[in-house]
Design a protein around this nucleic acid. Structure first.
Lengths: 121, 121
DNA sequence: GTAACCAGTTTCCTTCAGGAAACTGGTTAC
DNA sequence: GTAACCAGTTTCCTGAAGGAAACTGGTTAC
């Protein structure tokens, strides 16, 4: 018989780890969250905007990550009939549901940074 | 002048992306969240318990991940003077502050799974 | 016609995460 | 003394992630 600790976690820990895994896979990698962050902050952005704003990313990576985000319907891609053609990227309504998750990640990260900072002095 | 979208995100987006990056780095990799999950569900666990519970992990990986989690003070390691010696791992109080983050990841992941499921039929 | 801008793609290369299996070193039960 | 359990470590290997740079293909401004 396994010990059950008072973790505060609510019942049914069934496929929850799969759900977590899914989310992590969607967000993992060096760039996805940064791209999402840029799009959430700035609204609609073109490819070149993103290339400039996401610090250090290469065109290949940006292209690849945007494709993945589009496939997962987090980001919408719109080709504009301008000269020269431009392409607009923005978060989908669905993509915006990630805001809470990202806010939590940011919030905890800030606590952690404060903690690390205190230690170091 | 850059467009500011109504993201619901609150002011100061300064080093926030660093905070997010920190959190992601701490949780990234194939195993960390699974280990944390196991410890949160079961309370105190020994090395062998974890090896059995975390499906598919190899001893090397478990050892390495636990070291990293310990360094970051998310997990506490206690050597028990039993025969043969056993080692207990448990979440620290600090580690438990991750609960909300993980709950958000799980919650979003479940929504996402439902969405994928709907599409597929 | 040539330089510059847009939105990528392709190629080639390096690094690192992670896996399998063997090995260490101690303890106990028989 | 030998088999089994604990808690790892070491070695060797592979595949995927990611970076740099060159290339494509179209359009416009000069």
């Amino acid at each position: 018989m396994k010990k059950k600790a008072a973790t505060g976690m609510h019942g049914d820990c069934g496929p929850k780890h799969l759900a977590i895994k899914d989310t992590m896979e969607l967000l993992s990698g060096k760039w996805k969250i940064q791209i999402i962050g840029a799009l959430m902050r700035n609204g609609t952005m073109r490819f070149m905007d993103l290339l400039r704003e996401v610090d250090g990313i290469a065109a290949k990576m940006l292209s690849k990550e945007l494709q993945e985000l589009e496939i997962n319907e987090l980001v919408k891609r719109t080709v504009c009939d301008t000269k020269p053609i431009t392409v607009e990227y923005e978060m989908t309504t669905y993509g915006r549901t990630l805001e809470k998750v990202i806010a939590e990640l940011a919030h905890w990260g800030e606590l952690h940074r404060k903690r690390i900072f205190k230690k170091s002095k």
